[in-house]
Design a binder for these strands. Sequence first.
DNA 1: CTGTTAGCGCCTTCAC
DNA 2: GTGAAGGCGCTAACAG
Lengths: 371, 371
Amino acid sequence: MRPAATVPSTARREDNNDERVATMSPRGPRAPSVGSQGATLSDVAQAAGVSMATASRAINGSPDRVVGEELRRRVLEAAARLDYSPDANAQAMARGRTATVGLIVHDIADPYFSAIATGVAAAADDEHLAVTLANTQHDPQRELAFVRTLQEQRARAIILAGGRQDDERANAALRAALETYRSHGGTVALIGQPVLGVSTVQADNTGGAAALASELLRLGYRRYGILAGPKAHLTARERLDGFAGVLESAGVTPEAVVNSAFTRDGGYAALAELRRRAPDVEVVWAVNDVMALGAMTSARDAGLSVPGDLAFAGFDDIATLRDVAPPLTTVHLPLAEMGRLATPLALDVDGGVRQLSVTGEVVLRDSTPRM
Amino acid sequence: MRPAATVPSTARREDNNDERVATMSPRGPRAPSVGSQGATLSDVAQAAGVSMATASRAINGSPDRVVGEELRRRVLEAAARLDYSPDANAQAMARGRTATVGLIVHDIADPYFSAIATGVAAAADDEHLAVTLANTQHDPQRELAFVRTLQEQRARAIILAGGRQDDERANAALRAALETYRSHGGTVALIGQPVLGVSTVQADNTGGAAALASELLRLGYRRYGILAGPKAHLTARERLDGFAGVLESAGVTPEAVVNSAFTRDGGYAALAELRRRAPDVEVVWAVNDVMALGAMTSARDAGLSVPGDLAFAGFDDIATLRDVAPPLTTVHLPLAEMGRLATPLALDVDGGVRQLSVTGEVVLRDSTPRM
DNA sequence: CTGTTAGCGCCTTCAC
DNA sequence: GTGAAGGCGCTAACAG
């Protein structure tokens, strides 16, 4: 399985980095001493023969005042010549606000979150904001810690992505941290459930799952196995409620409902348990796509064919699905768009707590053929 | 395909956010005026009846001086009581350096980059550094712009992830921007090719691809189709060279070599072209996994079975592969580890330009059965 | 339209 | 071990 490369190694030339010479700007000697940390606005002003105020206005175009054509040109020229780079930290201090938003995710390697991150990054870019990424690794402690760190950085806004837990203790702690952050002038938005008292972008999990259940029923499925995720996970629970509710009104009872982590590995492990508890299931629905994918792989590893022996469905419509075979039936969520939407919500200075809701769309694919 | 949810909408309760009350700290009245932006160190010092210097030392433990037990306790107590949150921007100014590293990636939604980001985030965390994420969307202009932005933020280090292009114009511009950044005190590391005159973590692309080719030959494959990525992309080129080199020494000439974007969609599109040019290929090798996955889907969309009609192999071993069927043969790269490794390299203050090399490991899977 | 003058919040020599 | 004072780089009132 893992043969070493028994090949004439043309590879691995280690040090062809000799081009790091003569990269100095060909514009003549830089002003200050060697090893300088760069020119300051004061240097620029002096070089241009104007006051710092004028230099500042010329470079950053202050709201009110406008600088005369001639001086402006001189300032800009001097700035360029000196490789002047405004110090964002100093600007932040003087202006009393930064140009940074924080993005807190559970796991940036999860396609769900990286899609959201894409949306946030795009929106932030439009607003000329930098985004500080915080990866909690699913640890609520770290989530808390990151809120504090972001507060210390005076990030203008924080976007928290990821469903909340039904854990009043943890929620209370986070709520308090966010409240402190807000009392310090920050603003917050959440992508998940509105249980933190902040603006929220939420997906219609219940409705989407319900719609999916309806479709599966219509396709003729009657024996359901459900990978429900963690009991306390609100997203998981909402989806489960929506799905199970429809089954129930149709007089169908799931063969088994298995709880597990909300992750790919959680799905993989849960499938084995599901089969133990209910060997004769027709279709497995997992409350999110990564779990469904893990479960599908688990089923295959156990010798089952998909969808021949077992059909599968998920939720989210992560990008990964484009290349999965058979294509996975799911509920499409506009993930990047949700990240995009959350950004202005988070930046909202009115202090108003707003809610945005996006709906999911059932997408039937080959993993759930008509029975 | 897209039925609306015709379900009793228990869903979408919009505003259960009434819990945003009474979240104020139960520790008595906050000191300053309403709408305060938070206590400053000076407030804390005053409340503790000590000088700012002492307060500062008590809270951040300055290098030399140590604060007495009693005063230290009083300061910490006051800080807690006032919800004091140190201002990282002010600290950055006073100290002359920030606690931020910048991470520039082409596309955070690409599993290759999100894996690297995970490693960087973990390593940065260990060093108590925040990471600013810059998503270039494959645009060299934006890459340049982000270097400048990160410089303005005075990010302590920048990590550039992603293979370089053979575009001396673009490289020169980037090299100059990085040089400026470095002259301002920043440090840089690159994950890719050492063509920018900065410390680099590089994968042994040539060796890995060569080893893969050897294995495929050993399995009996003789008719190769290669999805080579962009001609100017150095990673693509290195891999191609390694692979083609081994084929050549074995007296095998690829049936076709198709260029395309280095992305999933590039792979998808390229496969059609490949089949047009060489209908009788036995195995398709793409220079990275996302291309291979796109190509596999393309083949299936064209009615081929994998690996029955056509075998596939890739490069990188992205996490996605765990749930792909049939499992894709590839060259494993320790992506997260590469991100981890790049971080200390980037932080290196010695100014030394260092090179680190990681090797790839061929992983044979079901997508390339023995012929 | 341009210049002067205060700080923004914190750290850090330097004295005591 | 503690305090006083200067300054990091920039912006934002105020005056002219």
